[in-house]
Design a protein around this nucleic acid. Structure first.
Length: 571
RNA sequence: CGGGGUGUAGCGCAGCCUGGUAGCGCACCUGCCUUGGGAGCAGGGGGUCGGAGGUUCGAAUCCUCUCGCCCCGACCA
């Protein structure tokens, strides 16, 4: 493309509401434009990168034996009522009515539709396994869209669904997708990790998230420094180093702690490390049960682990009034002694002796508290958030922590949807069995954004070759100069003929502006055409990545570029 | 949904407190000039000041309501 004919609205100034690098750079480089909160137009340049990622995804899905189809985005309520999710899904599901007042929704995901398709078309195990995917716009009415394409309401997603006759076969389908994802993100030039993940409310037995490592990531993950273990902190376990239950050495003793409510305040006041305290969190399940959760003072509760243990969807902290009612004291002084509700504790609490706990009376704590002697715990479990430095649950290694951007997620679904929607086939014994499903998502736009989070500098984006909107940019320093136009034009034609995606900056701008734009939009290789170098019968070639310039004979340049682009694509 | 903020030209902002002809920088258009790192000069186009109502001789400015957007939190295949 010639830039004089291309829509490239780059911005010198940074739009005020762009918080993270990728959002800022995508706006500045003219890749996207905001239409409404969490809703974006992909401008020509942005769309090219999106298409690159889509194409890589397509090739790898096809290679893994999946078939592409396309389902509608507007779905009838009936289908969602059948699976029960019309009621369950909540406000994230954007509901609408047609002119006949029938109810519809904008689909945030397609388990129902795909299951409906398959139950109507697949009758026998001989037709399995089956893996169907689509690349399509999705809509989720997020509470708080932010960070540009990172968390939009409308977004492009690849979603695939596998159908198998039994668990063994389903595991193999899952594994194929896992491998395909490894290839996809590798080809996109990303530094990523596959981590064990919580399955959330989509259900299913097992799941991995593909996390691109980046500071701006919304997820925290941990990984072992000596084995392959890696997990989302929502799911991450840790090794229990000390299993012994220590003997109490101190008596239970009431101590005044005026106005000291938080762990930090109490620890400082008593001149003890926070790890000598036990914090008592009072929560209520969505089922209405109130209970206490004990953790070492310096630890954080992992609500997901707690919910799993309690088999509920959410827990909330008790209000000030409820705390007062349950403990007889203002919040900040709750403790497990003589508490009337059920008391759960993190495994670590079992290994603590002579601890500090709340006394259930205003401005007082107990010293020397011991489990079993001074208070009882109904159940110990893994309830705390893993942190860097914890022991790996699989080996002797130590966990490290990272921020990650979730670009892909693979799930073993089991028969949750096939059962709800009656998707069954006859097996080899002529018996009706529900299909065993898996589902596999990739956020396309998010992948582009994540790539930018990992590849940029002060001047702008540094696109990896496979997802760059153009592979080469030819900058004509003075497009009015006949010789420059001629030489640049010839190179441009040669590259086009070779199938190289090339942008010709033939705009009548000053060189500085063109250099700045080329760097901002991150084209991997730039060829500068100016009469100074042309006098030596040379072009100047510069890679965006390292900025190194080299002079190259005009006659050799096209062949070198073609070679170089292919080499980088194959990397 | 709770807390905080903001809405004035495509983008970034000033003006609002203390009411009196709507401004600046960038971008855009024309001309001259310039051409290896976002030049310079001159001229020009573009705004129902988010919307509705109210107070006032007069509202971007004061009051009420409303909508959008942003940040923090809860939430989230």
């Amino acid at each position: 493309m010639r830039l004089t004919e291309y829509l490239l609205p780059t911005l010198k100034e940074t739009p005020a509401d762009a918080e993270i690098v990728s959002h800022r750079l995508m706006l500045r480089s003219g890749m996207i434009r905001k239409v409404a909160a969490g809703i974006y137009t992909y401008l020509p340049l942005g769309l090219r990168s999106v298409r690159k990622v889509e194409q890589i995804v397509r090739e790898e899905m096809d290679r893994a034996g999946a078939m592409e189809l396309l389902m509608p985005m507007v779905l009838p309520a009936e289908l969602w009522q059948e699976s029960g999710r019309w009621e369950q899904y909540g406000k994230e599901l954007l509901r609408l009515r047609d002119r006949k007042n029938s109810e519809f929704c904008l689909s945030p995901t397609h388990e129902e539709v795909i299951t409906d398709v398959v139950r109507g078309t697949v009758r026998s195990y001989r037709q399995l396994p089956l893996n169907l995917y689509q690349i399509q716009g999705k809509f989720r009415d997020e509470i708080r869209p932010r960070f540009g394409l990172m968390r939009g309401r409308e977004f492009i997603m690849k979603d695939a669904y596998s159908f198998d006759i039994d668990d063994v076969s389903a595991d193999s389908s899952y594994d194929k997708m896992y491998q395909a994802y490894q290839r996809i993100f590798k080809r996109c030039g990303l530094d990523f990790r596959a981590v064990e993940a919580d399955t959330g409310n989509i259900g299913g037995s097992s799941s991995h998230e593909f996390m691109v490592l980046a500071e701006a990531g919304e997820d925290a993950i941990v990984s072992c420094d000596s084995c392959e273990y890696a997990a989302n902190v929502e799911k991450a376990q840790m090794r229990m180093d000390r299993q012994t239950v220590p003997e109490p050495t101190a008596e239970l003793q009431l101590v005044g702690t005026p106005q000291r409510k938080t762990i930090a305040e109490v620890a400082q006041f008593l001149e003890l490390p926070q790890s000598r305290l036990i914090k008592t969190l009072l929560v209520e399940t969505d089922g209405g049960e109130q209970l206490a959760v004990l953790l070492r003072g310096d630890r954080e509760l992992n609500e997901i682990k707690l919910c799993r243990l309690l088999d509920c969807l959410e827990v909330t902290m008790l209000s000030e009034e409820a705390v007062q009612q349950l403990t007889g004291a203002p919040s900040g002084f709750a403790g497990p002694v003589d508490l009337s509700c059920r008391i759960l504790a993190d495994n670590e609490v079992r290994t603590m002796a002579d601890s500090v706990i709340g006394a259930n009376q205003a401005d007082a704590h107990y010293l020397g508290a011991n489990v079993g002697r001074d208070f009882q715990v109904s159940e110990f479990a893994d309830l705390r958030q893993a942190v860097a430095g914890d022991g790996c649950p699989r080996c002797d290694g130590t966990l490290q922590s990272w921020r990650g951007i979730e670009v892909g997620h693979v799930f073993k679904l089991g028969t949750k949807y096939s059962q709800a929607l009656g998707a069954k086939v006859l097996n080899a014994n002529g018996k009706d069995v529900p299909l065993v499903m898996g589902c596999y998502g990739i956020g396309i736009g998010r992948t582009v954004a994540a790539a930018i989070e990992q590849n940029y500098d002060d001047s702008g984006i540094i696109f990896p070759m496979p997802i760059a909107p153009f592979q080469v940019i030819i900058t004509l320093l003075n497009p009015k100069d006949e010789q420059v136009r001629e030489a640049g034009g010839q190179l441009y034609d040669q590259l086009l003929r070779a199938g190289i995606e090339v942008l010709l900056d033939d705009r009548d701008e000053r060189p500085g502006s063109k250099f700045k734009d080329a760097e901002l939009i991150g084209i991997p290789i730039r060829v500068t055409v100016g009469n100074r170098a042309l006098k030596e019968d040379a072009f100047e070639v510069q890679k965006r990545k390292d900025g190194e310039r080299q002079m190259m004979a005009v006659a050799d340049t096209a062949a070198w570029l073609i070679d170089e682009v292919k080499r980088e694509l194959a990397e």
